[in-house]
Design a protein around this nucleic acid. Structure first.
Lengths: 129, 129
DNA sequence: CGGAATCCTCGATGATACTG
DNA sequence: CAGTATCATCGAGGATTCCG
């Protein structure tokens, strides 16, 4: 991987590499990224609030995403024993650092939207013509 | 989104936001990220070389991923008219900047593998016990 | 070698209904 | 409200075959 500290001459532990890939695959998940962003913005949010803030997510995927994130230590789930039930989600410090790490990608996407659209138009033009 | 320049009081153009989400969804794709890393490391690589370096990718997905990345302007595809065919792929500057942007996420994953495994173990222990 | 085309499967996801 | 459980689908992706 091309990041500081990577040296191709030093073989990476395959188990470590596999786990990194698995973790990347997980956190790079569409819903995970969107939920992460909403909690970063919103602080502590309830189940339904998150659902409203993430357009298009189904209740099933929201539950599933939140469970995985909780299991990975990205957020904490707090149940208030009241009726009706009240469940709050908030990022852990680990979740916050991941959010920061993704910051560069969000900025890249915003900064390069035009370049990408231009590239696509050029590519499609080539394909057509 | 929680990144510099984001202000919730300024409504984001929905079209821009949709496109950002689409781009994020694309580049955050598992295969895209892995191919990006290999090209960042390897410089100019041939189709088969990339396939070997990305364990588990099928020929179909490799082709598909490379086409999308080419269309998005992340890499250039060069065909040498020789026999047998020789096709080289290399990142564009845009591809390089994306790779840099992802660098933070790779580092996060590596640096926090232990924390994630510990969180999972704790979560699973709670669930079982 | 570097694909394109085809078929097929399986898992991710959505929709729906029910519950503490 | 915040889920769980169940069923249905749909498309991503793998396997295979063929080609310039």
């Amino acid at each position: 991987m091309a990041h500081p500290g990577y040296d191709p001459s030093i073989p990476v532990d395959p188990r470590v590499e596999a786990l990194v890939n698995e973790v990347i695959g997980r956190v790079a998940d569409k819903w995970t990224m969107l939920v992460l962003e909403e909690l970063e913005q919103g602080g502590e949010l309830r189940f339904t609030q998150i659902g409203k803030r993430v357009p298009g997510i189904s209740q099933k995927m929201l539950t599933q995403t939140l469970r995985q994130m909780e299991r990975d230590g990205l957020l904490v789930r707090t149940v208030y024993p009241v009726v009706p039930p009240r469940v709050e989600y908030r990022l852990t410090p680990l979740g916050n650092t991941l959010s920061e790490a993704f910051c560069g990608v969000w900025m890249w996407a915003e900064n390069n939207l035009d370049a990408i659209e231009a590239a696509r138009a050029a590519f499609d033009g080539r394909a057509a013509g």
